[in-house]
């Protein structure tokens, strides 16, 4: 991705995107003042975990031999990773691109589009890992992690975030108005509700089941659930490859589109 961006911005010396660290600094500065928004962002998945895991859990009982909270926790973690990355790569990016003209000012300096991309991606990964670590700690405290493999859910949720950010940024480069973002909800809401988040995929009749199994959030939830419950099956290789490819395709589309948008 960065290499193809560098071609758009010849004259960037050294490793393409290395100056993205400067943009990362900017984001850290901004959040120094609004750290409350960063910290409180963790409470939403927490509330969902308590409400759905325990409140609903009392009605549902066990699913696939697992206490309901154990079943639903990794799914909520995956959803939070997707939503966080999508928010940053759609609304936030659109605001910076079209309204704040943040990048216009940045591109008047030695920084190029590759630095913009690498800086924003790095920031999203840092933010994502903060939330992922906090969620894993929570699962351990509540006894919802059944295996030490739960630690691998941290890179796992970063991978989900990477895939979502790839698709999100690519989509945002085509967005013209705020109303276009209502479409984002049209895709994310069914993903959130039907990706074996709250009940197992076996509840669906064929061919719906196969369709669900082909959606990105399902792959993410499948991956994290396999890790946190300590039941890895061979399909997690498919999960990883699927999410990686999705992210890379999104990023390569973005790199072509972003250069066109910024350097007209």
């Amino acid at each position: 991705m960065l290499a193809s961006l560098a071609r758009l911005m010849p004259g960037t010396t050294g490793l393409p995107g290395r100056r993205g660290i400067r943009l990362l600094e900017r984001n850290v500065w901004v959040y120094r003042r609004s750290w409350i928004a960063l910290v409180t962002g963790f409470f939403e998945p927490l509330f969902y975990l308590l409400g759905m895991g325990y409140g609903m859990g009392a009605l549902v009982g066990e699913i696939e031999g697992l206490p309901y909270a154990v079943f639903v926790a990794p799914a909520l973690m995956a959803t939070a990773a997707m939503n966080g990355a999508l928010y940053d790569s759609t609304f936030n990016l659109f605001y910076k691109l079209r309204y704040a003209r943040t990048y216009d000012a940045v591109l008047a300096t030695p920084l190029g589009p590759a630095d913009v991309a690498s800086g924003e991606v790095a920031w999203a990964l840092i933010r994502g890992s903060l939330y992922a670590v906090a969620f894993v700690v929570l699962m351990l405290l509540l006894g919802l992690a059944l295996s030490p493999l739960v630690l691998l859910t941290i890179p796992g949720s970063l991978l989900i975030g990477f895939a979502a950010a790839g698709v999100g940024t690519a989509a945002t480069t085509w967005m013209r108005r705020w109303q276009d973002f209502d479409l984002v909800a049209v895709f994310t809401l069914p993903l959130f509700l039907f990706s074996a988040t709250f009940f197992p995929v076996t509840a669906y009749p064929e061919p719906i089941r196969t369709i669900v199994e082909l959606t990105p959030l399902y792959r993410g939830i499948h991956l994290l659930r396999a890790l946190s419950t300590g039941q890895p099956d061979p399909a997690i290789v498919l999960d990883v490859v699927y999410l990686l490819v999705l992210g890379l395709v999104g990023m390569s589309i973005t790199s072509r589109r972003l250069g066109k948008l910024l350097l007209r």
Binding site: G61, A185, F194, A203
Partner: peptide
């Protein structure tokens, strides 16, 4: 408009019918 129509349908379908069958 889309979210007004679509979100009750999705929520009732997923939680109400899907998870509801387990309850």
């Amino acid at each position: 408009a889309i979210t007004t129509f679509v979100s009750p349908l999705f929520f009732l379908g997923s939680i109400g019918i899907g998870l509801g069958s387990f309850v």
